[in-house]
Amino acid sequence: MDKIVILTGAGISAESGLGTYRGPGGLWNDKRIAALATPEGFANDPETFAEFHNTRRLKHLEAQPNAAHEAIARLEAEYPGELILVTQNVDRLHERGGAQAVLHMHGVSDDMKCNVCGVKYPQPFEVPWDVAKRCDDCGGRLRPDTVWFGEMPYHMDEIQEHLATCDLFAAIGTSGNVYPAAGFVRIARHVGARTIEINLEASEVTSDFDDVIRGPASEVVPMWVDGILANVGL
């Protein structure tokens, strides 16, 4: 049975009310806001960081999974082969939509970690991050357990291994602007995997994909999942 690797980006959560990070109106297009996702910015002004990230965390709490999240969870549950779900998103909507195993390469916004020793602490969305709270182990300042600009994404060795052994690679709701994720399609193609981009519009790496599906994620992802499951065993 074929092995499927799915990569999701901010576009899959856009219909849940969470804005994208790139493209028209993207959050990181504003350099002042982008500075709130750097280690240097955190060191210079942790209070402003806390205010910004607490606002984002509340938006993640209010957002609800959409049909695309739920369809991927159904594929995970019903597909008889191996399915690996990798996401650039920190919002937990995949889990809330029913997914059981998610590789969060950019971390999650409902956890904190010590900026010094790296010890992690659960931080539910509904509980504001108190910037004055310190690590119990070393006294270091706590920060969101999310990957900031210039930092290495999580799970990269595991993701690379899955890409090197996949038969189908699908990128859903990604801009193709952010590496290393934007380069995953080339790794998959190098090993002979079929590749498909599912997105509202063309990404920066659309030309690297074998197939393309255009449309809102909540509409086209469930249809794509239906097609995969309908062909299992044929």
Rank of each mutant, 00 (worst) to 15 (best):
T55N: 11
T55L: 04
L58I: 05
K59P: 00
L61K: 14
E62G: 05
Q64C: 10
N66D: 06
A67Y: 04
E70S: 12
E70L: 13
E70Q: 15
L75H: 12
E76T: 07
A77Y: 07
E78S: 01
E82G: 11
E82W: 01
L83N: 12
T87G: 15
R92Y: 12
E95P: 01
A99N: 05
L103E: 01
G107L: 07
D111L: 09
M112K: 08
V116F: 04
C117A: 09
C117V: 07
V119F: 14
K120V: 15
P122E: 03
F125H: 08
V127E: 15
P128I: 09
D130K: 01
V131Y: 02
A132N: 11
A132W: 03
K133A: 11
D137A: 14
D137Q: 10
C138Q: 01
C138D: 03
G139N: 05
F149K: 02
D157S: 14
E158V: 04
L163V: 00
L163P: 00
L168G: 02
A170H: 02
A170L: 13
A171D: 01
I172M: 09
S175Q: 09
S175F: 07
G176V: 06
N177Q: 15
N177H: 11
N177T: 09
V178Q: 09
Y179V: 02
G183M: 08
F184H: 06
F184A: 11
V185I: 10
I187G: 02
A188Y: 03
R189I: 04
R189N: 13
R194C: 07
I196L: 13
I196H: 02
E197R: 01
